[in-house]
Design a protein around this nucleic acid. Structure first.
Lengths: 222, 222
DNA sequence: CGGCTGATTGACAGGGCTCAAGATAAGTGG
DNA sequence: CCACTTATCTTGAGCCCTGTCAATCAGCCG
């Protein structure tokens, strides 16, 4: 871990809405997100956009450019962020030296893969309300895991447009679905803050089963 | 690579429709698919099923149980298969010894991740016909890459039910969409064989851009 | 020749989309 | 701190893509 921290160069701040990496590019460095939010997304020919995932502090949103070389989507800041740069050649050095570090990064890739699978399940088979609920559960849970949550709320600078583009919904429908969740007194999402009002019922509605976010823990929390 | 092949134990044949690994289990071994087809999938409470990906010869469908320990979905044979077993402890030995092998496996994980992203884009933002077309393009292309394709056809033992569950469609709609593609003379899918009739038009309809399936190739084929 | 699994069809309903305006909130320059 | 601009959020209306329900056909196998 120490070795990994060593290869992070030059932390800098970036404003919201800035592309960190572009679709189709061949980066020589990866980026470690130290604070703030970023998201991956891709634009389609028909003008649509699909958001693929959100990253929080500690994530390396474009780690895969180290392995796959070519970016197949964009990474953009959702809020103002602090990011550090990791040159690929340095990454190569430390991963060859520390197999444990490699395994940790690989695990990170695996967990992200698990999140993709969960999203796919949602977009493919869950009705809109469960989809929205699930995404918000996931976000809350992940941030709680790394200590970025208050008792029952998190900072979440996601607009309804972003939500819609993440879940394969239209903006209008995302809005109405959110209103429905609000009407059920399950949660509140306004001014960049998500507040969970009834975790148990929300979890049930979303069919949220957080084990995919945990690593090697036979015991589940909450 | 040689080291990797060494750790594959006891190849055996498995009939179609058999679960290789179950959701929620904690396997001690992974499986290498030597011939045939498998797929990952997960069942939902409401009776629905989402297929997450298909594997072909050479893939390790449950590699991630080595890293994440717990399976968060099932892996089932789609056809009769030959599979080899890889004990996790052996995998640990060789990956610690050969960083290049680790990188190759990691890359495999990354590429699968890229495929998940592509599926997510499809299910989230593409209309049914493009979704079906895209999946079939992908399957054809991948099999061609590893030499499992004829000039313009591949063996593909996918039922329409499977197709529907992969793409977040209903069986009925999958059927009609397939008929539409057939009507456009773009492809043919019957008796476990997919035949591409007009690759260019199909590719265009699907917005299929195969670069996400390639590794470190600046030049694209076809 | 029954018994299955898989493919098709028809009819009908509904969840979610599109179009089009407004209403709010947030951000900015002066 | 205000006027103005822009981003976000809401609403209403109408329709269409896709789902559900229910049968009917077709192919394969013992």
């Amino acid at each position: 871990l120490r070795a990994f921290l060593e290869v992070i160069e030059a932390p800098r701040t970036v404003a919201a809405g800035v592309d960190l990496v572009r679709d189709g590019s061949w980066p020589e460095v990866s980026t470690c997100l130290l604070s703030g939010f970023t998201f991956r997304h891709k634009h389609l020919q028909n003008g649509g956009r699909q958001i693929l995932s959100f990253q929080i502090a500690g994530d390396v949103p474009d780690l895969h450019s180290y392995i796959l070389k070519r970016m197949d989507h964009n990474v953009t800041t959702l809020s103002a962020c602090t990011v550090g740069t990791i040159p690929h050649h340095r990454l190569k050095e430390v991963t060859e030296q520390y197999p444990n570090l490699t395994r940790a990064l690989w695990r990170d890739t695996m967990m992200e893969s698990a999140i993709f699978r969960e999203w796919l399940i949602g977009v493919g088979r869950r009705p809109a309300i469960a989809r929205v609920a699930h995404l918000l559960c996931e976000q809350f849970y992940r941030m709680r895991l790394v200590g970025l949550a208050d008792e029952n709320s998190i900072t979440l600078p996601i607009t309804q447009t972003d939500l819609a583009d993440s879940l394969g919904l239209s903006l209008v429908h995302a809005n109405r679905t959110l209103q429905e969740l609000r009407g059920l007194s399950l949660l509140e999402l306004k001014s960049k803050t998500l507040t969970i009002l009834d975790w148990e019922r929300l979890k049930e509605l979303a069919e949220f089963e957080p084990s995919y976010l945990l690593f090697d823990l036979k015991k589940k929390t909450r």
